[in-house]
Design a protein around this nucleic acid. Structure first.
Lengths: 112, 112
DNA sequence: ACCGTAATCAACCTATCTGTTTATCAACTA
DNA sequence: TAGTTGATAAACAGATAGGTTGATTACGGT
């Protein structure tokens, strides 16, 4: 039960689809229902509905109830946890590269 | 030919696997060969080799040649482009939420 | 109560992912 | 040159992703 690993799996997988990224982009401008979200797409509303379920299961969006509507809202905190994961390793790697640069420059100086 | 969309697809999909994320974590501490990367895993070296190909196709790592070895290096720039994408929409959404808070607070003030 | 609408469920199809095993390629070493 | 080692290719099997269509649930309006 690697809960946090599973969460990362689901979140990154959720973002690995252009339709779902497009839904995220749309929701960043404010809440929207399934019908509203599905409108611009060629695929069926059912397909969009399942994309939304994927995003919700990944914790990237939340849903409220308003009569028969189920408005979707973006969950910025979940997005932040993804950038946090990525940045952890990016920053370590960048430090490595800077250190390597320093070593190379030192060697070059000693040469001359 | 949505090249940049395809790149995002491949990059996020590449991160949607615990083995590949583990490889990223390892590579953040410095370059490593396929054998070195495969050693801690239970799965076969061939499987790890293909995970590495996925990471390379996604642009998340690069490879050099050193005799019969093919050392892998992390590509921080690619990771940065991912955080840039996520942060774009996260920040917009956060602004939305702050604006909503402001509206709600204003309404509360007028009430009293 | 009835009808329309928002949304989902269920069954099905196809393509892709991820692992395996076996075989092959390419480079170093004695 | 023969043998070893790093790495990959090829072919296969099982699981899952993502689309379709048709049926169903649940709420609202008249």
């Amino acid at each position: 039960m690697n809960e946090s690993e599973d969460r990362l799996d689901r979140a990154f997988l959720a973002l690995a689809d252009p339709v779902r990224r497009s839904l995220i982009a749309r929701l960043s401008r404010g809440e929207a229902t399934v019908n509203e979200l599905a409108e611009p797409f060629v695929i069926s509303k059912q397909a969009v509905s399942r994309h939304i379920q994927v995003l919700e299961a990944a914790g990237l969006i939340t849903r409220t109830r308003d009569g028969q509507r189920r408005p979707c809202h973006l969950a910025p905190a979940a997005l932040e946890s993804l950038t946090a994961w990525i940045d952890t390793y990016r920053l370590i790697a960048e430090r490595q590269y800077r250190r390597l640069d320093t070593v190379l420059n030192t060697m070059k100086e000693k040469e001359s």
